[in-house]
Amino acid sequence: MLEMIYLDPLFAIEVVVSGLLSGIMYSLVALGFALIFKASGIFNFAQGAFVLFAALTLVSLIEGALFGVKLPLLLAAAVTLVIMVVYGMAVERLVLRPLINQSLIILFMATIGLNFFTEGFAQMLWGAQVKRLDLGIPEKPWEGLRLATGITLSVFELVAAAIAGVLVLGLTLFFSKTTTGRALRAVSDDNQAAMSVGIPLQHIWAVVWAVAGIIALVAGMLWGAKLGVQFSLSLLALKALPVLIIGGFDSIVGVIVAGLIVGASEKFAEVFVGPYFGGAIENWFPYVLATVVLLIKPQGLFGEKIIERV
């Protein structure tokens, strides 16, 4: 690996930064999982399907699926937002609430069912062909940056990362500063104690699923524009898994940082280490990293320590 030292440092920076940028987008997907896990202890296997559902809905509205009227991007996004919030709350109401107090494995099975239902439902409504989503953000490199520093980064990646960053920041503030956010953390700590002080669990869970729907929409927009809106978007769940393991399922901050770590390290590994293994290590490298973390720190790098009560 000595050759690495002779590589252009600018190129290395470029690789890492573009890795970080796509890392933020992993964080975004993983955040949808972490949120529901934190509030209700459920691993929502269907979060990836939510992303697909959101992206397909958005594209279809833009293309005029609704009464043949082609909606402009912003209006379509607003309508999709409402649909995702309603869908998230309906799932909580119709699937998870009746299963309250059941064992976790049953809840997990329910979300697997929900995953396939959501995938099928989305494609039944909007069709299964690959669609292009144009958010109007140019895919070209940022010239100013390239001229000034020699680093080539795509404008799209920067804008996407900024959007994801703003959402993540907004959620962090929501959790730490608002009454509902605080109640949500209380519920995730001890749900009977939360009930005892008058926090209605159902209300909090409805909020959580609605927020998961919103996150799915933003992730669906950004990933859909990047990869095309297609069935494989729902496989983003598989990208989120190592992020969750590394960051800790119940840590919002952890998931964000882990997304960045995964994004940067997989790109770096692909470009600089991959050639020694014959390439294409990007896809499994995060899992290796996740396994190592599991062995060293099973609750994840930022997972909440289990506090022993006196």
């Binding site: 009454t179 605080r182 109640a183 953390r185 700590d189 001890d190 939360a194 002080v197 909440e304 506090i307």
Partner: peptide, 16 residues
């Protein structure tokens, strides 16, 4: 609530 501060714990009491 073990992962909330003492003051945040008190504030959750005012939820309703």
């Amino acid at each position: 609530f073990g992962h909330l501060t003492v003051e945040e714990n008190l504030l959750t009491g005012a939820y309703t």
